[in-house]
């Protein structure tokens, strides 16, 4: 699975990577009135044999080494660059994925291509196929390092912050959405815990407990609040609602006891297992409910061995 994940990520990055993140933006250009004798100097300065011809920031043509040799061979006197430039060369857009740029370059057999803004034709960069892989790898390295740093920062927050105690508090509001689309908060809690570097078994327990509780909020209470506190010792999840309340909590905790209507059962819930599942996932589970006022659940999952 590990290898597949890496390949997936590289594929994803290749599709996400845009031309603008790897194009060269620092280079000299020529004006249509410039003469062919100037071309060699510009190619040398740019260390690139593609010379864009630009008027009012707009690309009007390109000169390559072939055009320059053609002029040299002709032994003609100095001529304006417009006499020798290409006007219908392939161009790229900065927002284009690198993958599509590679395809275009290979189809047109171009080695160096200018990058222009789609509407205005304004020149913004140049791409060279011979440096492309190096540029892509550099960009991958930057993205990878950024991800590593972000992950490191989140997962080491408890060690990096100097304080007598560090506690991260997350608050989620569960809106009164149809139960069919529920589970978003549990999913967000899982992602947050993953980013904080919490052990995967504990994430699984917190996810299952949160998910059951979230579905209960949607089925019976019309929404509510999740307060999640994470510290090196434990994950504490407090779920509160202002729903109708549970008349007999002891009975509600009996496995298989359910008051769920058919529409809840049709969604794959309401078999009288929810509260028991939450209890099984928790090291401490408390429930307090008052009819007409609401219900409050407290779930604690220990992160440190006692």
């Amino acid at each position: 699975m590990g290898k597949i994940k890496i390949v997936d990520r590289i594929q994803e990055m290749l599709y996400e990577l845009e031309v603008r993140s790897i194009m060269w933006t620092d280079f000299y250009t020529l004006h249509p009135h410039d003469m062919m004798s100037k071309v060699r100097k510009v190619m040398q300065r740019n260390r690139n044999t593609l010379v864009p011809i630009v008027l009012d920031k707009k690309l009007i043509g390109t000169l390559t080494i072939d055009n320059y040799i053609k002029w040299l061979n002709s032994k003609e006197k100095d001529k304006p660059v417009t006499r020798y430039m290409n006007v219908d060369s392939v161009t790229l857009h900065p927002q284009e994925p690198v993958i599509s740029a590679l395809r275009k370059m290979s189809d047109s057999k171009s080695i160096r291509v200018a990058v222009v803004e789609p509407e205005s034709n304004e020149l913004v960069g140049v791409i060279c196929r011979c440096n492309l892989f190096e540029d892509i790898l550099t960009q991958f390295d930057i993205v990878y390092k950024d991800e590593q740093v972000r992950h490191y920062r989140a997962s080491h927050i408890f060690e990096d912050v100097q304080a007598d105690a560090v506690n991260i508090s997350l608050l989620f509001h569960v809106a009164d959405t149809p139960m069919e689309f529920g589970g978003e908060i549990a999913s967000s809690i899982r992602t947050a815990l993953q980013n904080l570097g919490v052990n995967s078994d504990m994430i699984r327990r917190a996810g299952i407990a949160s998910y059951e509780a979230e579905m209960n909020l949607l089925a019976y209470a019309g929404g509510g609040e999740f307060q999640v506190d994470v510290n090196p010792k434990h994950i504490k999840i407090v779920i509160s609602d202002r729903g109708p309340g549970i008349p007999d909590v002891k009975q509600a905790m009996e496995p298989g006891y359910s008051t769920a209507p058919d529409w809840v059962r049709e969604l794959g819930f309401g078999a009288g297992m929810g509260l028991n599942n939450i209890d099984d996932c928790s090291d401490i589970f408390k429930i307090r409910s008052e009819v007409g006022v609401g219900t409050k659940l407290v779930i604690v999952i220990d992160l440190e061995e006692p």
Binding site: G183, E212, M215, L267, G268, A271
Partner: peptide, 23 residues
């Protein structure tokens, strides 16, 4: 039954089900 999945399905299993909703 999704509560059954949550209670008893092991990590890394194949899940067979007829329930086709988001849950």
């Amino acid at each position: 039954l999704m509560s059954d999945v949550l209670a008893n399905c092991k990590k890394g299993s194949l899940l067979l089900t007829i329930l086709s909703n988001l849950q």
